[in-house]
Design a protein around this nucleic acid. Structure first.
Length: 565
RNA sequence: CGGGGCGUAGCGCAGCCUGGUAGCGCACUUGGUUCGGGACCAAGGGGUCGCCGGUUCAAAUCCGGCCGCCCCGACCA
C-alpha cells in the first residue's frame, strides 16, 4: 500500500503524556490516538497489528476446537444479579439504565452470558464438551488507566469458555488452552512465562497467567532458576534465608530513643535488620490484629486477606488506643490482641518493640514468648529460597498477556446451566474461562523489541513485511524504478508499505526505523547507477545489495525463511 | 480514592512570580533552491490561553470553584 494514501501520522517528538516505551512508540509511529483516559483509537497501522494478532489467536483457538461467536456488550443486570457479581463488583463496572429504567451494564467479561446461553441450549452430555470464544470489546472503569494500551477502560479481549461434563473434562479443556496459549504467544514472538496465579474473584480451582517480562509491567512474578517454579507475586511463596542468630539468652529491655523504623533501630543497635521483628497493626472485621514480620520483610496484604478477610492498616491513633503505645515501639509481648506471625519467625531470636516509648526488647524468641498463629504473610523478595527446591528465587516485573481459570460450577449453578448425564441425572456444566489481551500483546512486543529509533516488530505481527522506500520521487528514473518494484512485489503478494511520499530521504529513513517493519528496501542512486537495491534488516541494521532483477525472489526467500516468527 | 504535576496554535514548549501588544521550534499552505539519515530562503494561514465565576480601568497572568490529562500509591475478574 502507498504511504501517500494512508493515515500514518508519525510524530517527530515524544508526546508529553507518554511514559512507557510502548506507549511512546505506539503514539509516535501513528498506531493509536487517545480519546480519553484509557480509551484509544486504533489507526490503520495499529489496526493491522491487532488483526495479525487476532488471526494467530483464531487459528490456534480453532485448532483446539474453539468456535467463534459474538456476544453482546450490553447486558441486563438480572444475569449479573443472579451470580451475585452485580453487588460484588463496585465502581469498576460501567452501569447504565435503558429508556425503561431497567438496569444494564457494559460487559467486563462474559461468564454470565455464556452460562445463560449454555442454560438455554445445552441439554445433554452428548452435546459436551464445547469451547466458545469471541474477540470482543470489554469495559472496565479502571480506577487508574495507565501506560497507554496496557491498562485501559475499553479494550479488546479474546475470551473463551469451556463447557464440560465434569472436572476431568475441565482439566482437559484447560490443558488444551494452556498449550494453545503457549503457541499463540510463541507465534507472536513474545518472551513469556507461565505462572501460577490467584483465581481472585473469578472463583474456582486452578489458574495460570501468561506473563511477558517488561519493566513496564504492572505485575510481578517470582521465578526459581533451578526447578522452574513460577508464580505471581500475589501468591508466590519463598523461604527467606535465616541470619546467624546471636546468643541472646534472656529478654532484655534496651533503650532505643527515637529509633522507630526498622532501619533506625538496626542502625542504632548495629545489628542486621533480619534480627529485628516488626509488629504491624491492622483493622479486620473482628477488630485489631497484630501482624508480625521479620524486619526486612514486607507484609503481603493479599495473603493476609485470604486468612482474615478484608482489613486495612490501623491509623496511628488506633494503635495508641488499643495498645497504649506509639507507633514505632509496638511489640508482640504482653498485649491482649490476636497475633498473626510470618512463618519465617518460627525460628530465631529477635529485637522487637517493648511497647514502651524509646525502648525495644532484645532476645524475643517468638516460638517461646509469643502465642501467635503462624502463616506465610510475607512478600517474596529476590534472593530468597524456592519453597519447592531451595533454589534462588528472582522477582521480575511482567505484563499479563493471558490468563486461564478453572471456574467450576459457580456460574452454571447460579444460572442453571445444567445437562442430563448418561443416567438421566441433572448436573451443572463445569466451566473454564480463558482470556487474552491482543493490545497487550502488541504493547509487550514493543516493550520487548525496540531500540532508540523505534519499534522492531516480530514479522508475524508486523503491520507490513516490507517497507519499500524510494529515496527521491522527483527523480524520474528512481521513481519509475520504485513503481516497477512496487508493482512486481505486489504481484508476488508481498505485504508491503510503499513510501512514495515526496519527502527528503532522512525523513523517510527515520520514519521507517520508527515503524519497525522487518525489512526496508531502498531504491536510491545506487539502484540507478549500479542496478542494485539495498535491503536492510531492521533488527540487525545489516544491509545487503541485491540486483534489481533478483529483488522479488530474494525477498520471497527472505520472508519464507522468517515465516511464522 | 489519597499524594504530586500539568492544561497557551496540530505536536513540543516559553510567557504567569512582578496584570496592559499572545510568542518560539516543529508541522501546515504558496513560490524557489535542495535531495541517502528529521534541508534552506522568502511569503503566509492557524490560538474564545481547559471551563465558570470573582478582583481590577484592564486577567493567559491574581483569587475561588469545577473539568480534563499524566505520574506515584490504593484498587484491579
Amino acid at each position: 500500500m502507498r504511504w501517500s494514501s494512508l493515515l500514518i501520522p508519525t510524530l517527530r517528538e515524544d508526546p508529553a503524556e507518554a511514559e512507557a516505551v510502548s506507549h511512546r512508540l505506539m503514539i509516535r509511529s501513528g498506531l493509536v490516538r487517545q480519546l480519553a483516559a484509557g480509551i484509544y483509537c486504533y489507526l490503520p497501522l495499529g489496526h493491522r497489528i491487532l488483526d495479525k494478532i487476532n488471526t494467530i489467536i483464531r487459528e490456534e483457538m480453532n485448532r483446539i476446537g474453539g468456535q467463534e461467536i459474538t456476544l453482546p456488550a450490553i447486558h441486563p443486570a438480572e444475569l449479573w444479579q443472579q451470580t451475585g457479581r452485580w453487588a460484588e463488583i463496585g465502581e469498576e463496572m460501567f452501569r447504565l439504565k435503558d429508556r425503561g429504567r431497567r438496569d444494564m451494564c457494559l460487559g467486563m467479561t462474559h461468564e454470565e452470558i455464556i452460562a445463560w446461553l449454555a442454560a438455554k441450549e445445552i441439554r445433554s452430555y452428548r452435546e459436551l464438551p464445547q469451547i466458545w470464544y469471541q474477540i470482543q470489546v470489554k469495559f472496565r472503569d479502571e480506577a487508574r488507566p495507565k501506560s497507554g494500551v496496557l491498562r485501559t477502560r475499553e479494550f479488546l479481549m479474546k475470551d473463551s469458555y469451556s463447557l464440560d461434563v465434569d472436572e476431568e473434562g475441565l482439566r482437559q479443556s484447560y490443558a488444551l488452552h494452556k498449550e494453545a496459549y503457549g503457541r499463540i504467544f510463541e507465534r507472536c514472538g513474545l518472551t513469556f512465562y507461565v505462572v501460577e496465579s490467584d483465581p481472585g474473584m473469578m472463583g474456582g480451582a486452578g489458574s495460570h497467567e501468561f506473563m511477558a517480562p517488561s519493566p513496564a509491567g504492572e505485575d510481578e512474578v517470582a521465578l526459581c532458576g533451578s526447578c522452574g517454579y513460577a508464580a505471581n507475586i500475589e501468591l508466590a511463596a519463598s523461604r527467606p534465608a535465616l541470619p546467624t542468630f546471636p546468643s541472646w539468652s534472656s529478654l532484655e529491655e534496651i533503650p532505643t530513643p527515637g529509633a522507630r523504623t526498622i532501619e533506625e533501630v538496626s542502625t542504632f543497635l548495629q545489628i542486621d535488620p533480619r534480627l529485628t521483628l516488626k509488629t504491624l497493626m491492622v483493622m479486620t472485621g473482628d477488630g485489631p490484629l497484630l501482624c508480625l514480620l521479620r524486619g526486612d520483610q514486607q507484609l503481603h496484604e493479599r495473603k493476609v486477606q485470604h486468612l482474615v478477610g478484608p482489613f486495612r492498616p490501623a491509623h496511628r491513633d488506633e494503635v495508641k488506643e488499643f495498645t497504649g503505645v506509639e507507633v514505632g515501639f509496638l511489640g508482640p509481648l504482653n498485649l491482649e490482641l490476636p497475633l498473626l506471625a510470618d512463618e519465617a519467625l518460627a525460628e530465631g531470636v529477635y529485637v522487637a518493640g517493648a511497647n514502651r516509648e524509646g525502648t525495644h526488647l532484645r532476645g524475643v524468641v517468638p516460638g517461646k514468648h509469643v502465642r501467635a498463629r503462624y502463616a506465610d504473610i510475607h512478600r517474596v523478595q529476590a534472593g530468597e529460597a524456592c519453597v519447592k527446591c531451595g533454589g534462588l528465587v528472582t522477582v521480575e516485573p511482567v505484563i499479563e498477556v493471558g490468563n486461564i481459570f478453572q471456574l467450576g460450577t459457580r456460574y452454571s449453578t447460579a444460572l442453571k446451566a445444567v445437562y442430563l448425564d448418561e443416567r438421566g441425572q441433572e448436573r451443572p456444566i463445569v466451566m473454564g474461562s480463558y482470556g487474552i489481551g491482543p493490545a497487550r500483546i502488541a504493547a509487550a512486543a514493543i516493550e520487548q523489541s525496540h531500540d532508540r529509533d523505534g519499534a522492531i516488530w516480530p514479522s508475524s505481527i508486523a503491520p507490513f513485511q516490507i517497507h519499500l522506500v524510494t529515496v527521491n520521487v522527483k527523480d524520474a528514473a528512481m521513481r519509475s524504478l520504485g513503481e516497477e518494484l512496487y508493482r512486481s512485489l505486489a504481484a508476488a503478494h508481498v505485504e508491503m508499505l510503499y513510501d512514495d511520499r515526496d519527502e527528503r530521504p532522512g525523513v523517510k529513513f527515520k520514519d521507517a526505523d520508527l515503524l519497525g517493519i522487518p525489512y526496508r528496501v531502498t531504491v536510491g542512486s545506487r539502484a540507478i547507477k549500479d542496478g542494485q537495491v539495498e535491503i536492510r534488516n531492521r533488527r540487525t541494521k545489516a544491509d545487503s545489495m541485491v540486483p534489481v532483477a533478483d529483488t522479488v525472489p530474494h525477498i520471497q526467500a527472505l520472508l519464507s525463511r522468517t515465516d511464522g516468527k
